[in-house]
């Protein structure tokens, strides 16, 4: 059999066929948030919206808990989750902090510690 298994990378969820299968309905819901009408429907009644999109109970709980890593574990793709995050006004630094156990400020400081000072212009 072809060896296509990806090696594990710590702290990273490879979004592969298995994850895409598990997360299909959850991601479909998040994809629907491209439309303001759908974002509003979720704001109005999140439980009904999640049921309509056939989320599993575990996925619903991760959404209620705002647990981003758990959503990833349950097959979420960050591309669509970004649209979910948009409903709450969370940008990528807020999400980054939520996933890596840091406050937003700590997360920004972590980013800056690896980059600024290595700027090159020319």
């Amino acid at each position: 059999m072809t060896d296509y298994k990806m090696k594990a990378v710590e702290g990273t969820y490879h979004f592969d066929g298995e994850a895409a299968t598990k997360g299909f309905h959850f991601n479909k819901m998040c994809y629907s948030f491209n439309s303001e009408e759908n974002r509003q429907a979720f704001r109005d009644d999140a439980e009904a919206y999640m049921t309509k999109y056939k989320l599993t109970e575990e996925q619903k709980q991760a959404v209620r808990d705002h647990d981003i890593n758990r959503m990833l574990e349950l097959g979420g793709s960050i591309y669509y989750m970004a649209k979910f995050a948009g409903i709450f006004g969370w940008n990528m630094q807020v999400i980054g902090g939520m996933q890596s156990g840091r406050s937003t400020e700590e997360f920004i400081a972590y980013l800056e510690s690896q980059g600024r000072g290595k700027t090159t212009n020319g």
């Binding site: 999400i95 996933q99 972590y110």
Partner: peptide
């Protein structure tokens, strides 16, 4: 890296 506990990793040496 946007997702996971490892979110926020950067690598200036590799980028350059």
């Amino acid at each position: 890296q946007l997702d996971g506990q490892r979110a926020g990793i950067l690598n200036a040496d590799f980028d350059n």
